[in-house]
Write a protein that binds this DNA or RNA. Structure first.
Lengths: 123, 123
DNA sequence: CCTAGTGTTATATTTTACTATTACACTATA
DNA sequence: TATAGTGTAATAGTAAAATATAACACTAGG
């Protein structure tokens, strides 16, 4: 797994798993790979994976059953809430950043539209 | 200055100064505060500030004159290029993140529009 | 020429994330 | 009941960022 060296690995693992849950790659109630397997999958240490999982458990998205495994919550409202929260966080961040670069609301919207239209193309 | 503990301080300082240059708070050719003063301003160490400055110098945005100070480049094209680059980086990041949450191009655009319309308001 | 202010660099120390390794607690099942 | 697989936690070590502090190199101005 690719890691951005500017951001803690445990944080990136957490985000990665959240994405899998939100996109349905991991279904509600589904068992996650074991912590040891996850560590191999993402090429990180068990403790680092555990740290990521601990935060997701504290957030109620993952349920931990000792001796059995970790499971995605069955409460789908928690998952939809998580998605809303992640999307909003991303929007707030990019808005704040672009606004700090003196782009007006209109320019921000236009720049996003422009980016989507031109993405993947040579300039 | 507020620091996000998930991102290296030197990196945040660099970004902060870039924003000041792009918004014109620091004009082309203008002298920056001394590294020692900057360290006080942003509540960080001189070496940390210097690391941020070194990268900006390497990028050609800041010119260093030993014994005199650090100065914003007079080449305004470098500044506009920097702005373009920062904006594009932000757009690419948020697009990738939202796309990874299974939002379509249309949904991404709509969510940005929606965010701008509703920002600062209760839900 | 001297001094104050500037950028630059170096050393030692602290802090934190991460790793490697081991051990412990629990569950299911053969 | 023994064993393999699971989560959990502790210990010790490594690496990188950040700090405190000091020194060095240069410039401008008195």
């Amino acid at each position: 797994m690719y890691f951005d060296d500017k951001i803690p690995i445990y944080y990136q693992i957490k985000n990665h798993i959240y994405h899998e849950i939100i996109t349905g790659a991991l279904q509600p109630g589904e068992k996650l790979p074991s912590v040891r397997q996850l560590a191999v999958d993402v090429t990180a240490n068990v403790n680092t994976v555990q740290r990521a999982l601990s935060e997701m458990i504290a957030a109620g998205i993952i349920e931990s059953k000792r001796g059995r495994g970790n499971f995605v919550t069955m409460e789908t409202t928690k998952i939809t809430d998580l998605k809303t929260q992640l999307v909003t966080t991303q929007l707030a961040h990019v808005y704040q950043q672009l606004h700090a670069l003196n782009l007006s609301d209109e320019e921000i919207l236009a720049s996003v539209q422009h980016y989507i239209e031109r993405k993947g193309q040579a300039k």
